[in-house]
C-alpha cells in the first residue's frame, strides 16, 4: 500500500503546527503502522479478506466544519482539520496519532453494507485505537454509558468486554459485516442477545450511570 501526505494549511497556524510537531514523514510512517495493526486486529492476513485499496492519501486542510469535528474519511482519503490541531491543548503528536489510527480503521473496516448502526461503526474504530494504547484520558471508563450502540468510546469499551468473553470476537463480527448486519450476529458469536450482553456488562461494573 502506498501512502501520501499533503499539507494544504501551511498558511495557517494549525498547518504550521502539524508540520513542526508531527511532520509528513512521521505521519506517513504512522499510516503504515496503523494499517498493519488493523489487519492484525481484523485477522485479515490474506489480501482477499481486505478492501482493494492501493493508495491512501492524507490531507491537512483549513476549512470550516461543524464544531468538534477532528477529521473525516472518504473512501481512501483522510482529512485532518488544521484548526483542531492548532487548538489542541495537550500532546498534539500523540493525539493526532490516535486520530490517524481511528480514521484508518474507517478505510479498512466493513460497514455492514450500510445497515450497521453508526454507533457500532464508530465503536469498532475506537476499539482499535484502544487496543493500540492511544486512548485519550478523557474517554469514558468501562461500565459507563446509556446504551450499547451509543458509539465511540462507550461502544468501544463494550466490545472490549465482549472480546474478553470470546477472543477474536471483533474480528469475526467485522468479517460478517462484510455482506450485511443483524443483531443476531451477537447471538451467533456469543450465544446471548446484545441487550443481555449489555446488561451483563453494566452489572459487572456495578451499574454505574
Amino acid at each position: 500500500v502506498e501512502y501520501s501526505v499533503t499539507n494544504n494549511a501551511l498558511s495557517t497556524p494549525g498547518g504550521v503546527r502539524f508540520r513542526d510537531a508531527i511532520g509528513d514523514e512521521y505521519a506517513k510512517q504512522t499510516l503504515d503502522s496503523a494499517t498493519q495493526f488493523i489487519w492484525g486486529v481484523f485477522q485479515q492476513n490474506a489480501p482477499a479478506d481486505r478492501k482493494d485499496i492501493q493508495k491512501i492519501n492524507l490531507f491537512v486542510e483549513d476549512r470550516v466544519v461543524p464544531n468538534g469535528v477532528v477529521a473525516y474519511t472518504s473512501k481512501d482519503e483522510i482529512h485532518v482539520i488544521a484548526k483542531y490541531v492548532n487548538d489542541y491543548g495537550g500532546d498534539v503528536k500523540t493525539e493526532i496519532t490516535g486520530v490517524l489510527y481511528h480514521e484508518m480503521v474507517h478505510v479498512w473496516q466493513w460497514n455492514g453494507n450500510g445497515q450497521a448502526p453508526s454507533g457500532l461503526i464508530e465503536g469498532i474504530a475506537d476499539y482499535v485505537r484502544l487496543k493500540a494504547n492511544y486512548a485519550p484520558s478523557h474517554w469514558k471508563k468501562a461500565g459507563e454509558g446509556q446504551k450499547w450502540d451509543q458509539g465511540y468510546d462507550v461502544t468501544a469499551r463494550f466490545l472490549d468486554y465482549c472480546n474478553t468473553l470470546k477472543s477474536g470476537f471483533v474480528a469475526q463480527l467485522n468479517k460478517q459485516m462484510r455482506t450485511g448486519y443483524s443483531d443476531q450476529f451477537f447471538v451467533q458469536l456469543l450465544g446471548k442477545t446484545v441487550d443481555q450482553l449489555w446488561q451483563d456488562y453494566k452489572a459487572k461494573y456495578g451499574n454505574i450511570p
Binding site: R63, P66, G68, V69, Y72, T73, G119, Q150, G151
Partner: peptide, 15 residues
C-alpha cells in the same frame, strides 16, 4: 440528540 450521534453526523456534514 446524543453526542455520539451528533459527532458522527458532523463528520458526514464535513465530507
Amino acid at each position: 440528540l446524543d453526542e455520539d450521534i451528533l459527532k458522527h453526523q458532523k463528520k458526514i456534514l464535513a465530507r
